[in-house]
């Protein structure tokens, strides 16, 4: 096991597994958020249901551990990779042999997404606590908080930029996971890549729709 995790192959494997955990989470998170389009009560009840059980602590622990491993391994790999390259080319490839922008800038996107996640948790999880009453149950009024936050253009712009970056990160990351796990072969090779792009677009657009909707309906 230590031999495997010590190797470049093993580290990429770890990046893939931890990345997939988060890829699953963001899809579920995005889908849950869509409830805001139905009603504030539905949105608040969903949030209340998620946070009232013990399962939230298990989910949070898994996600935090996965994130720490993902970021820690990324730092190790990025540093080793820069060292392995040494000096850069004077002229950068612009022709047919050029790699995609998303694949070349994973570390930058990842750093931005990490900053976004931290600020996002501060803004909402630890944001102003409003209360509301849905069918006799007192619960947190997150709908009020998000409508407050997303009425500010600065916040909306920051969210859109970060979510587009998240989309890029997912489009390359999810597809590459199949490569790292050794499943990118034969007939399905291009299918994985396409699915990864479709998935990333759905997640990014799904997330972006909410701040835009709230901002546009408030102005």
């Amino acid at each position: 096991m230590s031999i495997f995790l010590g190797s470049t192959v093993g580290k990429k494997f770890l990046m893939g597994i931890t990345g997939l955990i988060w890829a699953g989470f963001v899809l579920a998170h995005m889908a849950g958020n869509l409830l805001i389009f139905f009603s504030n009560d539905a949105y608040n009840s969903y949030g209340h249901a998620l946070t009232s059980g013990n399962i939230i602590y298990i989910a949070e622990t898994v996600l935090i551990l996965a994130l720490l491993i993902h970021v820690g391994t990324a730092v190790l790999l990025t540093r080793a990779n820069r060292q392995a390259k040494g000096s850069a080319y004077v002229v950068v490839s612009q022709g047919k042999k050029k790699a995609t922008l998303a694949s070349r800038t994973m570390a930058v996107q990842g750093s931005m997404v990490l900053a976004f996640i931290i600020l996002h948790i501060i803004t909402f999880k630890y944001g102003t606590y409003y209360e509301t009453n849905v069918h006799g149950i007192v619960m947190r009024d997150l709908a009020k908080l998000i409508s407050e936050v997303f009425s500010e253009p600065g916040y909306v712009a920051w969210y859109v930029v970060c979510l587009v970056l998240l989309g890029f990160h997912l489009s390359h990351g999810v597809g590459s996971t199949f490569q790292s796990l050794g499943l990118m072969e034969g007939t399905y090779r291009n299918l994985w890549k396409k699915l990864s792009c479709v998935y990333a677009i759905i997640v990014a657009l799904g997330f972006i729709s909410q701040p835009l909707y709230i901002f546009l309906s408030a102005h």
Binding site: A84, K85, A99, S176, Q179, S180
Partner: peptide, 10 residues
């Protein structure tokens, strides 16, 4: 001392 694969396809 070679680096790891980021699947850029370059």
């Amino acid at each position: 001392g070679f680096g790891s694969c980021t699947t850029t396809g370059a």
